[in-house]
Simulated assay, not measured.
Amino acid sequence: MTTLLLVLTGCSLNQQEIFNAALKMQDVNSKQVHTVMTFHMSGSGLDPDVQQQVDAASALLNNATLGFDAKAKTNQQKTVSQAQVIMNLVTPQVTLNVPIWVDSDLAGDTPKLTEIIQLPQIAKVTLPDQFKSKDYMVLNPLDQQNPESGNLDMTKLMELSQIFRDKEISFLKSYSKRFNPNFDTVSSSSEYMTTDDGSKIVRRYEIRLDDKQFKDLIRYTVNNFVQDKEAMNFIKDFMDFTLQVSQGPDQEKNLKAFDQAFEQFDADKQAEFLANFNDVMDQLKDVNILGDKGLDLQYYLYNGYIIKESGTINLKLDLAQMNQFVQALNGQQGASGEAKGALDMLVNFNTEVSGINAPIEIDFPEVNKTNSFNMTDMTDLLKKADKKN
């Protein structure tokens, strides 16, 4: 959402209003969020085997609903937070209800993060026998002794994330003032809605993009971003941030190599990159990315906050067009064996936000050795089994 808001934020007042509201939402200390998503997929003109697979997937996906009920709270410094998310997936064949709790404290010398997942029955039956009777799985990603941390220094990641978040917001505020794609994609209106304060007049903003506008926006964004010194420095900061939290043996070497490559990205290489990119966009002109309904997003603002988001994203893939595009990029015009048919995907979503900065209670389940297991325990067990084999 942040990326989308960035590229759609130009000089128009409507766009700036959405952007300001999105930034204000970053300072919210508590909220409840209810999201519902539905999908529709179809395929036509495909090879018979592929068509059969798409039809089978469509029958499942088109009758599915994915929902999230979440509530979260944090302190003013964003160092201590708690959250609960209940995911609901309903399909003709199965209904899944998966509650998740997160408790984090990054304020002390030893940051802590605990995640608790209540496992659905369909997941429990796949576990090793020792864990099949357990209701909860517990994860501690910040425990460096745990394999869950992978190749990342999770403690350092959380610390740097706090620092980088401030840099990101500062950059977005500055860059939005220089971002002007020269076409306004936002309209606005007012309507009555139920809010935390009762029925109130809410400002509604709608963003609409068709396939051509979407591609024009991508072209403008990349060209503008690459030629903007502050934007490129932001990319450098982001990559440095990513490399600094890596625990790989070549961390320092990779960081130095990236910084050196960045410094060598002079005006000539910048011009060469943009020439190649714009050539690709020219060839992409006749390749569908968005379907007939395009991209349609609505934001509802009250007291400067986004209290509701809804929309439709229509993706379309014409396999023949995409095949010709790939061949052109590879210099293989007219190659045989062209694909045929098209895929169409429609995603609808609706998100409502309430209880902004209001007191919220989150009840964590009591977990113990009888009703839960730690992800590390299962990982260790699987490792021992592998060694025996």
Rank of each mutant, 00 (worst) to 15 (best):
M154N: 05
G150L: 05
T155R: 06
P120V: 12
T126Y: 00
S149H: 07
T110R: 06
Q121L: 01
D129K: 08
D105Q: 05
N140K: 13
A107T: 15
Y136M: 08
S170F: 03
T155C: 02
I169E: 02
L106K: 03
D166L: 03
M154F: 05
Q144P: 12
D135H: 14
V102A: 09
T110A: 05
E159A: 08
V125Y: 08
F171C: 04
V138F: 08
T155G: 09
L139F: 12
K112F: 09
I122P: 00
Q145M: 07
L113H: 14
L127R: 02
K112R: 14
L160P: 01
P141A: 10
Q121H: 06
F164A: 03
T114H: 07
K112E: 15
D105N: 15
L152G: 10
L157M: 14
M158Y: 07
D109G: 07
L139W: 12
F131W: 07
L157N: 07
A123L: 09
P128K: 13
Q144A: 15
I122Y: 00
D143S: 02
P147G: 07
Q118D: 11
M158E: 04
S161H: 02
L106P: 00
W101Y: 13
Q162V: 12
G150C: 07
L157R: 07
E148K: 11
V125E: 14
N151G: 12
D105K: 11
Q121M: 03
L127P: 07
T110E: 07
T110Q: 09
S161D: 10
E148A: 13
Q130F: 03
T110C: 01
K132H: 04
S104E: 14
D153A: 01
P120T: 14
M154E: 05
L127Y: 06
V125G: 05
V138Y: 04
S161I: 01
V102W: 05
T155I: 09
E168S: 12
T155P: 01
T155Q: 10
D143N: 12
E159L: 06
A123K: 06
L142S: 01
L119G: 00
L113M: 15
